Simulated assay, not measured.
Amino acid sequence: MVSSTSLGEMPDNVLNEILAYCDFKDVLSCRKVCRSLQHFIDDVFPESTLKDLNISIHSKKVCLDYFSVYNTPYIVEYHKTFGNHCMVKCQPTIKVIENSNFLNVFLRDLEIVLMHQKSLIRLIRIVRYEDNCFEYFLENFKKLLHRPLKIEEFHMYVKENQNEILKVLPHLDPQSIIGISLYQYGEEPKVLEIGEVVKLEHWKRSEQLHVDKCILKMNVRDLANFSLVDTSIDSVSTEDMTDLKEKLLDHLLLAEIYIRCTRFDDKQQFLKSLGIKEVSSDLYGITRRIWHFEIPNSDYVLQIAYRSQNNSFTFNRIQRRHVSDHAEVLNS
């Protein structure tokens, strides 16, 4: 007669060998087999191999959508069911965990994964669809991390309060971050005060900033460290824009900083201070006023373009040979 041995009864070295062949989805499934296996996995879980991590939080569901370093996509869903149970869907497996809050089950699984994530995560995206569950997640995010999380790109949907960002961003490793993207929760653009966010090392070290629908309330000077920017600013002044221009003249890695200005009271003063301009139109008939400024000891110039249609300014670092023959390169 052949005897059978359950996973929980196997020697540790055998379980380690088995787990070495499991991906994230399989390990989470194994954790829900029995308590002894759950405790073993929590202690010896092999290194996580996440590359992209997308967290979508709904009123009765959380979706954990991710890619491994092998570009394998996985989706794990945590559903609230009747009787305060949690249903975990990880196709093709469905598991019901009785008397368990779906948010707590999700948070515990995420904690285990992040605890063993040693390699760099390319991107983490946090999406909100409901306020209460999202706030619960934010309040518990810090508790999930046993060390600062190393990521390259941070994406987050925010409402109108920088405190939401401050509950996540400071707990990421500032040494690894290169991009920050902020998206407005809801349809109407809203002003987002980020005075405390710009003080973080994460902001100062980041190279790219993308903002969608949010109108940032901040000093435009605090964009000078970025190489690539696409954002709207609540209010700017000639003094601040002039200071930004001077800083960008020394920015060796500048690609493009694109700023839509909601309010610029002394704009004409700034435009006049730039000097002689070139006027051009694109294929759609949109007129631009363009200025070129010399960068000392360089084959590059700083190009500033202004579009009155959307009150926007673009700062680029371009090669001098790309400046049109009839344009004048001004002294900086």
Rank of each mutant, 00 (worst) to 15 (best):
R108C: 08
K95P: 01
Y78R: 03
N104H: 15
M87G: 03
L123D: 09
Q91P: 05
K80M: 11
Y78M: 05
F106G: 01
V96C: 03
S100N: 06
M115L: 13
T72Q: 13
N84E: 13
I124A: 04
N132Y: 12
I75N: 09
V105L: 06
R108V: 06
F82D: 11
I121L: 14
V113D: 06
I75Y: 02
V105E: 15
V76Y: 03
N84L: 11
F82M: 09
F106W: 02
V76E: 13
L103K: 07
N71F: 14
D109N: 08
V76L: 09
L103A: 00
I97R: 05
E77I: 10
P92I: 01
N101C: 07
K89F: 05
R128E: 13
N104K: 13
E77Q: 15
H85L: 00
V88N: 01
Y74T: 11
L114H: 10
H116W: 01
D109M: 02
R128K: 15
L123I: 05
L107R: 06
K89M: 07
L103D: 03
E111N: 04
N71K: 13
K95T: 14
I75F: 05
S100C: 08
V96I: 15
D109P: 01
T93N: 15
Y129F: 15
V76Q: 12
R125T: 08
E111D: 07
M115R: 15
P92V: 02
H79G: 00
F82K: 12
S100E: 12
N71M: 12
F82A: 09
R125H: 12
N84D: 14
I94G: 04
P73N: 10
D131F: 09
S119R: 12
V96W: 02
Y129T: 07
D109S: 05
R108D: 14
L114R: 06
Y78Q: 04
H79T: 00
E111W: 00
V113S: 10
N84P: 02
Y70N: 11
T81W: 05
E77C: 13
V113I: 14
